[in-house]
Structure formats: structure tokens, C-alpha cells
Design a protein around this nucleic acid. Structure first.
Lengths: 205, 205
DNA sequence: GTAAGGCTGTGATTTCTGTCACATTATGAG
DNA sequence: CTCATAATGTGACAGAAATCACAGCCTTAC
């Protein structure tokens, strides 16, 4: 696939460098791409698929922070990379995913030489920061019903589809809640004609 | 005061530029430095005092995200600045505060010309991002008692003092909880010999 | 077809937190 | 000193959400 279309803002010289230095990798749905505590050796540009960025606690609870789709990059890996820190988050392929791995060592150089890369990094930071802010807003100020609605909306916004292919358990995990609670809330939403429930699938109306 | 000591990593040329272009401003304890929705015209370097960065919801709830002390800068204003966005957060002087305001227009230039500035921005991003992450962790995974302990610990870490001069109400606001809940939890902590309670003051043991 | 296992629905119960109501105590202004 | 006000203590209750228990139901493998 022609990855350049996903990053039209990149200048030709930058594209050349990336083509020369970056490595394309594939992940299957469910693969862990990065785990907490692991050293970060490269920054990933997403070409295809979806990557789920989440936080894990000691009891195995997974808390969704955001998704990365085609044309996006992991802000954390860019920051960590620049100072060779370890990862504070987990990244998992939600679907089969293609990424372009750019070695850490290049970061500084790219930042200095290519305006379009610099802009991209800044923009990525800002985007992720804003997403984190809205996550904080939600858990700080909202009840589970509103958080669930936000979650579903974000999911469909991201994928473009009105169909959400997730079990109640998966949603509960992402929201750090429990399956029963999510089931009940979804039932209420169905009664209010906001969704239609099927097995492993929720239809937004 | 000699602000350069606070930023020893800055190169001489950078210091010169800042001295020429930046404006020093004072805020009194309680002053709002920036509010949600406001345009950002400059980035602030904190010289003295503490600035509280928080998120406000429609009902007036204030949710503390983190503090900025001497030698630190507002990451959000750096990001917003670069794209002339509006602020997503509130900033309030917790104590009497001195800041150095650097006009937005300079940002790009500083980033390109001064390695030490670039490093500083990156480092600031990473620091704030990490703080936000631990905030998310806390509200997502922890109960109020643990969040309170974390809050108190963070406060003393920040100020270096073992004395916390806040009313229960103020703490409740920061944690988006209620005064009674905080009072009760503090009482429990006192019974477990973790703190001593006084009026408008908590002593950590 | 049938058995097993993964989903989903639902009631009962408990825990945590927020809210209301009001008592008590400390502080500072006059 | 005295009173007004702010801060704190505490009981009672309400609501949201977590947990437990279990019953159907849909797939898939065999």
C-alpha cells in the first residue's frame, strides 16, 4: 500500500529518509505491540488497522485511553523515544494492523531537519493530550451511563461504522467497570431507542 | 530575582532572547491566570509560587490535574501556542506567583534555533503527560481513600513541607468529592496515625 | 444432534460515595 | 468578651456501581 497518502503533509526529503530507515511491520488482531515497562526502540506510524492504547493496573484491569488509526502515531513513543524512557502504557492491535517503525535514534535528527515532521510531532502531542483531557473529564465528572454513551460514540466516530462489534465484557474492561453494569445500561439505552442489541454487536441509532 | 538559576540548562543566546522579548508578570494568590476557552497569547515560565492547573465542568466543579512550580512551564500553552488554539484548562495562582511570559510568536523560532529550548519543551510535555497518566490511573482504579493519600503525598512532595494548609472543602473540590467524605477519610487516617488534623491544616506523619 | 463454552439478562445484596441535616468547635472582628 | 462566621464532626439516608448467583441462549466443535 502507498503509505505516503496517509501523510500528505510530509516533505519529499522526509519521505525519502523514512523509506530508507523505517521498517514496516504487521500485527495480528490481539497482538500486544508494546507493554508497560518495556523499552521503546521505535516510534510507530499507523498505516492500517487500529491500535488500542490503554493503561493496566496491577489487578489486570485495562483502562482504555484512546485508539490510533491510519495516519496517526503514538505520542508517548515519540516523547519516550527522545529520552529513551520506558513505556507507561500498553498498546494492543485491535484489528490486523500495519505500522511503520522509525528507530528512536532518528527522532532528534528528523525534528531538527524536517519542518513537516516537527509539525507532525507537535500536532500528535496536542491531539493525544486533548484526548487524555476528555478521558479525565469523563471519569472525573460523569456517571457510567454517560461514559458508556461517550465510549460508543467515540468508537463509531473512529471506525465510521454504526455497528460496534464488541461483547459487553470487552466494553466493561475498557471502562474499568463490570459486565453486568454495562449490560443493564445498554438495556436501558435500547429501551430509549438509542441502540439495538445483538450478540457481540451493538447497533447505534 | 535571578531567574536564570531556575533554568540552568538554557544556552546563553536563548537567555538573551528571552530577556529581550519576555515580560515578567506577578499574580496574587487566587488570581486566575488562564481560563477555559481563552486564547493563548503566551507561554508562562514559572519563577516563583505555585500554579494550579485544573479542569472545570459546567457545574463549577474543579478537578485538579497538577501544579506548576518554579522552573516549570505550562505544556498546554506551548502546544496551544504553536497552533494558536484556545485553552482547554484553567490555571490559577495558588500562592503569590511570578511568571515570565513568552509571546506565542516566538515559539517556532525558539524551537528551531535553540536546542536547549527544544529539549525543555519535550521534557515539559513528557512530564505533564506522565502526571496526567497518573491522574487517570488514580481516578480510574482507586477509591477515594487512596486518591486522598496520593493527593496529600503529592502536595507535600511539591512543597517540601509536611504541613498542608488547606481546608477539607478545598481538598474535596480538587478531588471532585464532597467535604464530608474527605473529613471522614481524614479522621480514619488520623486514627491510623497517618496524619494529625488541625484547623485549616493537616500534618503528615 | 448434542455438549461445552461464551454471551447476555436479571434479581439480591453490599460497598462506596454523595447529600442532607444539624451539632460542635475554632477564629477573628468589633 | 461576644457574636458572627468558617471549619469540622457525625448520623441518617439515597443512589450508583460492584459483586454474587444463576438462568437462558446462541455458537461451534465434535
Amino acid at each position: 500500500m502507498n503509505w505516503k497518502q496517509l501523510f500528505p503533509q510530509f516533505e519529499p526529503e522526509l519521505i525519502e529518509v523514512i523509506e530508507k530507515e523505517a521498517v514496516q511491520r504487521s500485527f495480528n488482531a490481539g497482538d500486544i505491540i508494546m507493554r508497560t515497562g518495556q523499552y521503546i526502540k521505535s516510534t510507530a506510524l499507523v498505516l492500517e488497522g487500529q491500535i488500542k492504547i490503554y493503561r493496566e493496573n496491577q489487578d489486570g484491569g485495562e483502562f482504555l485511553m484512546y485508539y490510533l488509526g491510519p495516519g496517526q502515531a503514538c505520542a508517548i513513543s515519540m516523547i519516550c523515544a527522545l529520552q529513551s524512557h520506558t513505556s507507561e502504557i500498553m498498546a494492543k492491535a485491535e484489528e490486523d494492523t500495519e505500522v511503520l517503525m522509525i528507530p528512536v535514534q532518528l527522532m532528534d535528527d528528523l525534528m531538527n531537519k524536517y519542518k513537516s515532521w516537527y509539525q507532525f510531532v507537535i500536532q500528535t502531542y496536542r491531539g493525544r493530550f486533548d484526548e487524555l483531557l476528555s478521558v479525565v473529564d469523563n471519569i472525573a465528572f460523569r456517571n457510567m451511563d454517560e461514559r458508556l454513551e461517550f465510549y460508543l460514540k467515540r468508537y463509531t466516530d473512529k471506525t465510521g461504522k454504526k455497528i460496534i462489534e464488541l461483547s459487553h465484557q470487552q466494553i466493561a474492561d475498557d471502562l474499568n467497570s463490570s459486565r453486568e453494569v454495562i449490560s443493564r445500561l445498554l438495556k436501558k439505552m435500547e429501551q430509549r431507542n438509542m441502540v439495538k442489541l445483538h450478540r457481540n454487536m451493538i447497533e447505534l441509532i
